[in-house]
Structures are given as C-alpha cells and as structure tokens.
Amino acid sequence: MRYMRRTALIIAAAFWARDARAQISVSGSPAQMTVNKAAAAGSAPLAVTNSTTTYTINKPSGASSYSITAHINIAMPAGVTLGMTLAAGSTGSSSGEVLLNTSAQTVMTGIKQKITGATITYTLSATVAAGVVPVQTRVVTLTAITVP
C-alpha cells in the first residue's frame, strides 16, 4: 500500500515535470522576402515585411513563466538586416523588433499564459551598400526558456 502511494507520487511528479516543459511551435516558414526597390529615387531601399506566420507556446506551470529567445544560424550579409517581432498576444512582453544575429536574443518575456497563433513579423532591410544579394536562407531558432 505504501509502495503504491509512492508510485502514484512518482507518476504525478513526472507529469508535473512534463507540464513545466516549455513547448513552442510555429505555423511554418515565411515566403521569400525580396528587397527590390526604393520608395523613391534618392531614398534607401524599401524594407519588406512578412507577418504570415505565427507561434504557439503552452502555459507554464506553477509560478514560472517563459521567455523566448531567437537567433539565426549564419550572420546576415553586410548591409542586410533581418528583424523579428513577436506579438505578445494576451500575455508577456514583446521586445519589439529585434535584429537577428547568431547570438540568442530575447524577443519575448513574462509569458504566464498559453499563447496561441500570435503573429511573427519579419522585416528585411538592406542598404545600397549591400549591393545585389542572391537568394539565401537563414534558419531562425526560437527557444522557449523556463524562468522559475
């Protein structure tokens, strides 16, 4: 009987631990973004944005909250920047637009409730000094971190 009680406690602890694990997912990858014009002759090239993808993160358990960091696998070409903005949804605080690089940067903090289908906005900007940049890809990694 004592052994069964202990077993039940162990199973409960295991489930609690599983619930506490940050689970983040995205709806897919954005379509190709292309900088191809200036707003007017004499102006810098016009940035382009994509807000078609979303992210979902589960609710933290207990008193903990989640933060989200983002980084890319390879640095952007000189003169080209990739910005990311995560919409806060009903909880958390967005860092606003963060220019991505190979070091993880915080894009969202204080997530205490589940966020479902909140918008991810990417902004691609280029200076004229960047020149012509052929098609390239970058893998953006979003990491959900539990904050005790």
Binding site: I10, A13, A14, W16, A17, R18, A20, R21, A22, Q23, I24, S25, V26, G28, S29, P30, A31, Q32, M33, T34, V35, N36, K37, A38, A40, A41, G42, P45, T53, Y55, S64, I72, V80, L82, I120, Y122, L124, A126, V128, A130, G131, V132, V133, P134, V135, Q136, T137, R138, V139, V140, T141, L142, T143, A144, I145, T146, P148
Partner: peptide, 30 residues
C-alpha cells in the same frame, strides 16, 4: 525520478523557421 523532473523543468524547447531572402538590382532615377 525527482532528478529527472528537475532536469525537465530547466529544459527549453525550440522551434525553427527558414527565412529566404534576396536583394535584387535597384536602379532608380527621378
């Protein structure tokens, strides 16, 4: 199991997206 739970609590999970981009020739005069 408690140790396992502690490890799980501290862990993080990731999601990835692939961003494809390009800058084409820009030549504008006015």
């Amino acid at each position: 199991l408690v140790a396992f739970a502690a490890v799980n609590t501290a862990s993080a999970q990731t999601a990835t997206q692939t961003v494809t981009f390009q800058v084409t020739a820009i030549n504008q005069i006015a």
